[in-house]
Design a binder for these strands. Sequence first.
DNA 1: CGTTTGACACGAACAGCGTTCGCTCCGTAC
DNA 2: GTACGGAGCGAACGCTGTTCGTGTCAAACG
Lengths: 221, 221
Amino acid sequence: MSTPPISRRARPAKAPLSRDVIVRTGLDILDRDGLDALTMRRVAKELDTGPASLYVYVANRDDLMAAMLDEALGRVPLTADGTWRDQIHALANATVEAMSRHEGLATVALGAIPTSDNALLVLDRMLALLKEGGLDDTTAAWAVDLIYLHLAAAAAEESAYTTKGGEEDDTIAAADRRYASLDPRRYPMITSLRQALFSPGDRDAWGLNVLINGILHTPAG
Amino acid sequence: MSTPPISRRARPAKAPLSRDVIVRTGLDILDRDGLDALTMRRVAKELDTGPASLYVYVANRDDLMAAMLDEALGRVPLTADGTWRDQIHALANATVEAMSRHEGLATVALGAIPTSDNALLVLDRMLALLKEGGLDDTTAAWAVDLIYLHLAAAAAEESAYTTKGGEEDDTIAAADRRYASLDPRRYPMITSLRQALFSPGDRDAWGLNVLINGILHTPAG
DNA sequence: CGTTTGACACGAACAGCGTTCGCTCCGTAC
DNA sequence: GTACGGAGCGAACGCTGTTCGTGTCAAACG
């Protein structure tokens, strides 16, 4: 329309398309404008092309999001210092952060058995740490499943709270108000434990410790 | 189009619209044809009306899905026999089944602090059982959070496997093949523990026991 | 009894979506 | 020098959620 025949040489250079730049552009858009903005059209526009061009490198939107999750997981540091417990905590924290940092990616992790390169690297590292903790093969295998599921869920939850509309505090305050207005006859425990339900503290670390302690006390099979 | 002026009296009776029938119709469609089929237009068509009519009773699609989740959770039996541990297992199983039975509903639960009537009833019951187990207030409060998160995640995972395209076994078999083809130098643990990773067994019950045992061994705060 | 009101219903439209088709272009291989 | 094949992409298809304005009908009111 605006560039009839000189189209190509008129524009400066235009970096060539590739799966990698598409995936990275997708992550940029996700971080900048959220999940709703992550459309094929938007990614294409950011790369100065049309949506059809993306389909050479990406099968569909789901494929793109899976690749974006893998890219995000690729930035997780796989090594840390300390005991195997410390190292699991470090690995878990980094994984949750990598997932929850980009809205909607954790949900992708929850929807499929991990098979992408970087997800498997995280799993492999986690398995090594669990074996270091003295678990037998089956328990370690089931444990890594359970922990990965927990991390994805924790990331999804965190991502939802920090992204959705207003601030995270607003969401919690609204829930607190809701709980405060409940009928104590119908919801006796919630109303009487309301203070404890919203008490502050490092729930992430506690949750992971629960899992680890539970795993150590619960042989599989 | 087909019923020009006699439109109303021509058709038999046409049950009146209401939030309840919309929600139940949504669940029917979800069960029958999956998440992709759950569109406002489809729900409207099933009720023999247009999509605009739904918005009198439902704020938007998200609101509809939240209501559907609540409706599904309303079918969870809140009482069971046995020790408090047995009862927690029964409650957990019923909750996971209620969520995973309808594709996509578990994801809704993961995206928000539970505030709907029936979700809170489940939580209240769970809190009572945890207190019965001898937990202090804070630990019980954090525990119910953690367990509910786990149940939603387990349901989301199960729902994804059993619904997506082909059969569940296909998904697992494909993952198994993928793991079998990995480079043992890059993924030493996964390749050496592959058999354990895919070993059968009641992982759901084990996972819940891990949580309970872990909670009993890990005071909060 | 006639009129007013207000909630419900809904046809039509808007803006946008993921994806596909088929044509053009260009670097490579013969 | 020509044939080929992959990359790029304009245009279109069939959807989507949601809104707007109009129609309709039953209850409330004078």
